[in-house]
Structures are given as C-alpha cells and as structure tokens.
C-alpha cells in the first residue's frame, strides 16, 4: 500500500502539508483528489508551483483515485492523499481505496458548525462521515501538523 497519509483539508496544498507532513512522512508523491481541480488547468499549475520539484504531483477525479494509487504503487512511491471535504474522502473510500486511518487537518468555520479543534469545525454531515468511517474501522484523528498531540474523534460525540 503506497499511502502514508490520508488527509482532509479544505485548503488542500498549503504550508502545513508541504513543510511539516511531507518531511515527517517521507512521502515523495502527493495525490490531490478533487473533481473541480481535475478540470481546471489554471489552478493546477498554481498548485504545482507550491511543492518542491522532487515531489511527484498527481491530480485526479475522486473515482480515479484507486487506479492512480495502483500506478503509484508500481513505482514504489510513498503518497499523501488529499481531499478537500469529508464527503469526498468517503467517496474515495467507497470507490475502493482502503486506508486504516484518516487525518483531519483543516475544515473551516461556517455558521452552525461545531468546533472540534481550533482549525476544524464539523457540520452535521461531517459527524455522519465520522460515524461511517468508524463503522468501517477507520480511525479518525484531528491534527493540523504532526507536532500536535491531536485528538481522536469519538463516535459518541455530537
């Protein structure tokens, strides 16, 4: 399995991913699973400027993740998978990509959301997604950078 980290982050690629998670996990590939980005070359080109040239960047649609990961596995690369929302991550999981834990980095505030950590706010659908992941035995942890102690989301919390 080439995946070293699966992360939900509303900002996708940013400093926390590039400067802390990439060195911490030793990954050399970043898979950005996002339907909007896959169809927008302008934004993709900006994102590609943000990672060191030695990192292999892959943009794909949510339903193509499993296929892309297989290819990455054959190159023996270690990959970080990024999704912008919880429901995207769930779709990736349901379309056949298996992982044992998922990291929540940033989900920004909006009215009616519940604060989980300083940078993570859950909507009712997000709680639903946590339940779904827990039912499948996937551990959900909330951590912006590897330096933080982090919290594991308990299923009873609502």
């Amino acid at each position: 399995m080439p995946l070293v980290l699966v992360r939900v982050d509303c900002r996708l690629i940013h400093g926390q991913v590039v400067e802390t998670w990439l060195p911490h996990t030793g990954a050399n590939c970043v898979v950005v699973a996002n339907d909007d980005l896959a169809g927008n070359p302008f934004l993709r080109s900006v994102m590609e400027l943000a990672v060191p040239p030695s990192i292999h960047m892959v943009f794909c649609r949510l339903d193509e993740v499993a296929k892309e990961l297989e290819r990455i596995d054959s190159h023996e690369e270690k990959a970080i998978l990024l999704c912008s929302t919880f429901s995207d991550a769930l779709r990736v999981y349901n379309s056949g990509t298996r992982f044992s834990s998922i990291n929540i980095g940033n989900l920004h505030y909006a009215a009616g959301k519940v604060e989980i950590s300083p940078s993570v706010f859950f909507s009712p659908e997000d709680f639903e997604a946590v339940h779904n992941f827990r039912d499948h035995g996937v551990e959900v942890n909330v951590r912006a950078t590897p330096f933080e102690a982090g919290t594991t989301c308990e299923p009873g919390r609502k």
Binding site: R11, L12, H14, G15, V17, E19, V46
Partner: peptide, 17 residues
C-alpha cells in the same frame, strides 16, 4: 480559495522554511 492554499505553501516554504 484556490490561490490561498498554494500561495500559503509557497510562502511558508520560502519564508519560514
């Protein structure tokens, strides 16, 4: 939204890192 993450990454790597 699309630009702030990428530019954040570029700036964090260049300036802070």
């Amino acid at each position: 939204v699309a630009l702030m993450g990428s530019l954040g990454a570029i700036g964090d790597s260049y300036f802070w890192g």
